[in-house]
Design a protein around this nucleic acid. Structure first.
Lengths: 246, 246
DNA sequence: TCCCGCGATATGTCAGACAATTAAAAATTG
DNA sequence: CAATTTTTAATTGTCTGACATATCGCGGGA
């Protein structure tokens, strides 16, 4: 760990980077306790508030956790897939909103990614995966389900589909992409007819997976992508028609 | 923006979340100046160092930038794809290293994602995309290229391939996945024969894209995936043979 | 007109202090 | 001696006040 600081940049930035490097390189392994704030301050020759700012930067990335009290301190966090996923989702959400990514682009990316999971899912899906898919499909048929709940179940269905590929890295990417898209998806109004259509396609996907039939799965996914795009373009049409309604 | 704080959690955490929500919701638009630290301190009824810790948390996520001097302060950042990508890459790198994701899983995810880009890339690739691909392919044939440089060029080739899909969201995901894998890929030793093999497959991909031939592109990608996996399994074999060598 | 300096404002950093929390050591009790 | 309670020490969380530093805008002088 480097302890010499450069005056051109903020100290807290450099200290955070130094510690981050130590973590990434494995120099500070998971669950290792970092030196106390006072000791870090002495080692880097800065004040404790400055060290604290550096630690907060790391905490914001879930790289460390802190505990108070004797034998407390900052500890290297094992970055779980769940945490990383939450992080990815907020970043993706911001990207979509700040850069005005339109529905088509986001949906296209999402379905492209999802399609990438199908070959693996078709061969690896277990009975428990199929059961999750069936459960969500059943939920989507519930009477009186709100649009938001339907959308949430749709997301859950697709996440189960991705999980069936049995690759955590893939699941991580997908979950982030799907979650970030949820605000956009929530703008869709799901009529009874469109729900039936979507459920039919979901059912086709489920059947294809049960039969390990990649070709059928691909077809269903393509159809679902087309249909979702069509629903999405309705949003735009509606908005263009009433631009002042906000 | 909420200003009431709960005593159970750290103030800096809550203040950061409050500001983050304001940004995500669009309440604080891009390039908007946040209140000064002193004003935030007064508004949340905390001290300035506490506010600063909160701001550093946001800075760690590239959500804000700060400027010193009169008319300085913290400004909402437009989260660029490049920044988000760097962020994604470090997160992904940490995930891979901390959770001991093996080469096969990471490579499988990467090629699955990449394969997802092919249909789009085949129809949308422009001459400039093809030129980038050709340039990298030429670089890979350079005499005396180190393994690391070859690997870097390989990464650049694949990123160009993904960019050809013309979907920034997809490019973002892929670039993160590929970059995170680079440390793993760097462990491969590229013999003259394996380089020739890889370049042949790259060439096949390029040709397929030029001809808008999706089927050929898929075949080349599959072959490349298989070959990379084979190279990867050599690493493991070598490591298993000499476990003490480190 | 152009340049220089000055003040105002804001962030960056420091020093020292106290509060809150927690684990371990020490003292007390049965 | 064992179990329980109290004390103590270590560490993070927060506050106060101050100074250093960077930058913009204004006004005066060459």
């Amino acid at each position: 760990m480097k302890t010499e600081l450069n005056k051109t940049t903020e100290y807290s930035q450099q200290i955070a980077q130094s510690l981050r490097d130590a973590i990434i390189s494995g120099d500070l392994p998971v669950d290792e306790r970092l030196p106390s704030e006072a000791e870090l301050a002495a080692r880097f020759n800065v004040s404790r508030p400055t060290v604290r700012e550096a630690l907060k930067r790391l905490a914001a990335q879930n790289l460390i956790r802190t505990q108070r009290g004797a034998s407390g301190g900052a500890f290297v966090n094992r970055l779980s897939f769940a945490q990383a996923q939450a992080h990815l989702a907020t970043t993706a959400t911001l990207l979509l909103s700040m850069n005005a990514v339109d529905f088509e682009t986001a949906a296209e990316a999402r379905f492209a990614l999802e399609r990438a999971c199908l070959p693996l899912a078709c061969t690896r899906r277990t009975p428990s995966h199929l059961a999750s898919l069936r459960a969500e499909l059943a939920r989507q048929g519930t009477q009186g389900l709100s649009d938001e709940d339907f959308c949430a179940s749709d997301v859950a269905f697709h996440r189960a589909l991705v999980d069936a590929a049995g690759n955590p890295v893939l699941s991580w990417h997908m979950a982030g992409a799907v979650e970030a898209m949820q605000p956009l998806m929530n703008m869709i109004t799901y009529t009874a007819r469109s729900r039936a259509q979507i459920m039919a396609l979901h059912h086709a996907l489920l059947t294809a997976l049960e039969a390990n039939d990649l070709q059928a799965a691909n077809q269903a996914m393509d159809a679902l992508a087309d249909y979702t795009m069509a629903l999405g373009s309705e949003i735009r049409a509606r908005r263009a028609a009433r631009p002042a309604a906000r």
